[in-house]
């Protein structure tokens, strides 16, 4: 590790250290009740209890299971649809206004419909994740195709590329950086939405853990759950960012 990297590591950790110090200090200074805000040590103990009993892992797996399914279903439907709409102008002119209309409706507004249609349990939660990722992914894939540098299309035409070969060798790879950006952003959104969905529709998962702990006034579990959500979100983002370093994608933003 060179000095610059080391310095950045220390800086990024010191923000967390500062937060914990202010947190502990504020509790001691203002005598905050344990139910309103437990101290860092209590939250740490609470987290260890949850982890030790295996409850935490069950909730994490439940949440990740739902996110994986909802996100996966969105990726396999939205990306092909976006590509088709990007290429096929006629269809885009019909479908795009609809997508733009549905996109700003928060997935949370769909909760009642999801419960009515799919009952309780995993299906409505997965459906909400699907919705939260689907519309943005369509838009990212579609605009990825639409904004392809015209020179690439001209070069492809010049060398006689057409049909499937044109799509596989030029149009899809040219749109890929935009699709990958979409994948990264929607994974973040999916993780945001799962917690909200679990507060209502199901009896497991990190969202449920938080609501249930509040009901039993275990604020240490509530904050512990929040910390785990943040950590997993960070980890997911870190993993999906690796996609942007793949050789077929790395070129983006590095032209000249």
């Amino acid at each position: 590790m060179d000095r610059g990297t080391l310095r950045r590591r220390i800086s990024s950790i010191s923000g967390f250290v500062l937060l914990i110090l202010v947190w502990e200090g504020a509790i001691r200074l203002f005598h905050v009740s344990h139910y309103k805000l437990p101290g860092p040590v209590d939250v740490g103990k609470g987290l260890l209890e949850l982890a030790g009993s295996g409850v935490l892992l069950d909730h994490v797996i439940a949440s990740l299971f739902r996110v994986t399914w909802g996100y996966f279903l969105a990726v396999v439907t939205a990306v092909p649809l976006g590509l088709v709409l990007g290429i096929w102008r006629g269809a885009r002119e019909v479908i795009n206004p609809l997508i733009q209309f549905l996109r700003p409706i928060s997935p949370l507004a769909w909760i009642p419909i999801a419960l009515l249609w799919l009952g309780v349990g995993d299906p409505p939660a997965i459906f909400l994740i699907f919705l939260s990722s689907f519309f943005p992914l369509v838009v990212f894939s579609m605009s990825g195709v639409e904004s392809i540098n015209v020179t690439y299309i001209r070069v492809a035409t010049n060398f006689g590329l057409k049909g499937l070969e044109l799509y596989m060798k030029v149009i899809f790879p040219a749109a890929l950086p935009s699709i990958v950006t979409g994948l990264r952003i929607t994974l973040g959104t999916a993780w945001l939405v799962i917690v909200a969905a679990e507060m209502i529709a199901v009896k497991s998962g990190l969202g449920y853990l938080i609501v249930d702990s509040r009901n039993s006034l275990r604020t240490d579990y509530v904050i512990g759950g929040m910390i785990v959500i943040g950590a997993i979100g960070l980890f997911l983002d870190h993993m999906i960012r690796k996609l942007e370093d793949l050789p077929g994608i790395r070129w983006h933003g590095k032209q000249r």
């Binding site: 070069v155 010049n158 060798k169 983006h252």
Partner: peptide, 17 residues
Amino acid sequence: PSSKHIFVFQEDGLFPW
């Protein structure tokens, strides 16, 4: 356009991927 008439463009025409 024809694949016997090749155009070398002003900007980078290589496929970056």
